[in-house]
Design a protein around this nucleic acid. Sequence first.
DNA 1: GTCGACAAGAGGTACGTACCTCAGATACTC
DNA 2: GAGTATCTGAGGTACGTACCTCTTGTCGAC
Lengths: 341, 341
Amino acid sequence: MSRPTVHDIAKEAGVSLATVDRVLNARPGVRDQTIAKVQAAIDRIGYVRDTFAANLARQRQYRFAFILPAAPSQFARTLKDALKEAYASQLADRVLLKTIDIPTQDPHAIVRSLRGLNTSALDGVAIMAPETPQVRDAIARLKDEGLAVVTLISDLPNSRRDHFIGINNVAAGRTAGQLMGNFLGPDGEILIVSNSMRSRDSLERRLGFDDVIASDFPGLTVLPSVESYDDPQRMERVVGAVIAARPALAGVYSMGAGNTSLLAALRESGRLKDLTVIAHELTPMTRRCLQENEIAAVINQNVGHLVRSSLRVLRSICDDLPIYESQERVRIEIMMRENLD
Amino acid sequence: MSRPTVHDIAKEAGVSLATVDRVLNARPGVRDQTIAKVQAAIDRIGYVRDTFAANLARQRQYRFAFILPAAPSQFARTLKDALKEAYASQLADRVLLKTIDIPTQDPHAIVRSLRGLNTSALDGVAIMAPETPQVRDAIARLKDEGLAVVTLISDLPNSRRDHFIGINNVAAGRTAGQLMGNFLGPDGEILIVSNSMRSRDSLERRLGFDDVIASDFPGLTVLPSVESYDDPQRMERVVGAVIAARPALAGVYSMGAGNTSLLAALRESGRLKDLTVIAHELTPMTRRCLQENEIAAVINQNVGHLVRSSLRVLRSICDDLPIYESQERVRIEIMMRENLD
DNA sequence: GTCGACAAGAGGTACGTACCTCAGATACTC
DNA sequence: GAGTATCTGAGGTACGTACCTCTTGTCGAC
């Protein structure tokens, strides 16, 4: 009653174990006709390779690298913590993990880092990087070298990456828009804050947000995006200016990093209590703001899930196994004060 | 540089492989002093047992049963689909799964089912059942027979179950309350609908909901719970009566199964468009209602996660391994139209 | 001092798979 | 029909662990 083994295939196909092995591992020296016979037997008895026994025999090690922004944002730190935890857990069986920091703001430095990778010492990489032609080329090179490549959080859809692990950012923006519209009254103005509109995730979020507000909440006005470029001073200055100039301001949507300085600026203005703030990514900071009702909702993607999913997907790609989409789909979580676990 | 094996322990402790094996598997015939020596060696070199190799050698099969309500609710069906999927996936390695239906409404029948289990053919069970002293006793018996026991969705906190897999229902109710409060205007009445207030999850949800409304939204009035007892006719009748009698009704919170008949009754009344409906559990039906703006939000627990988590936890209990809480915590998901994946 | 009980060692086989070698069979070429 | 290239079979070892048997060592009791 237990699952069939290679021996069963051999018996069923009327060939020897060695031949089954050659077919299974795509080794040469088997006639097409025999291959077909073995394949038929495999299908008939429903054989599935025992990956763990195979890895044991093969002494397989999966060597993966996570390529992440060096910028010390709260979100990046949360992500790295999740990586450490995954590493410690049994999930990391036969997995060697490495984290590589890249300077996000300089596209050339990113490409230099990617080119500097010792690809022969790696089986796969997970990359979180902004979208530039150079990065796409670098990924093509990694694929040429036979690595598994997944993009993390922000996708590079026209690159040769195998898979994207992260949320649909248009839908995330739409969700923020729907929440904002439901929370606010019939009219008012909404400030949009972003770290940089050059990154794909911010663009997509803005797109989704605007779309929902325009179609479902026509009384609300969305102001142009304000960018902070990783600069707290700049954030406080520009946000302060908008608040002072906009008495009808009712909501603030923060699409990326920089929530600490944004909230500082809002507190400074004295209008925080009257504003509905929606931000992205649950960090110790945004969690505290939720608890104290300074932020109404946080759109989140679970970092633990992101990391575990990346590892599973990278392994599946390396082993040429199917990916269970329903398990790997990263959900757009709405976090409010009461469901902070 | 690869991970240490039993051989390394033997070398490090200066004993033979057989002795290491006896210590690792708690077999008799080793002096306390030698046990300590081996333990010290294990700690020093940081040995972790390779569970997969161990299971391979031991020809281990995990035999688990899921004990679920027989009632053909949409949620139960979703759960069973998730089970099938998990079974098909590689997660189910060395796991034999069985589903056992129990009639939820009859406590004695439940206990009869539990007593009828062939415990010698099982290693663990996941149970979703209402809370009665008889069920608690039945679980104690399962534990006496050496099974791993987890409770699913609705906890039995004073039983001898090993673990609970599901959301914190008080927090789920609070979340629903917070959403409802934010969505509604400053005043209005809220109807609470439940399948049966005898089940623990409904009670806890109501508790959390009332608490948040009372403290944060004092202008809102929560009406007494209306129960449907799995009876669509009864649902339509009682809900229709409340709607007719309450012109100030602004919100409906549905805490359990029966959303199909509830929504039918609301549509019938002609007031659905003016009501803010919050329900539990994402099913094909509630999903459609979200898309058509008939339901404002659904509080959900991901069934795929529930099932996978149950399997991982049951295995960990069987193998006496630690449970990774952060991975197993089931999140309270807020689903709205725009984040329906 | 010899016995028995217990502790520890040495060595084996097995699990399902990978990968190797060598021998034997079959098909193809001239 | 001999030679050669290609295919297939048989058998082995290995991976890390479990579990078995048989032997040797040690200790204390009588």
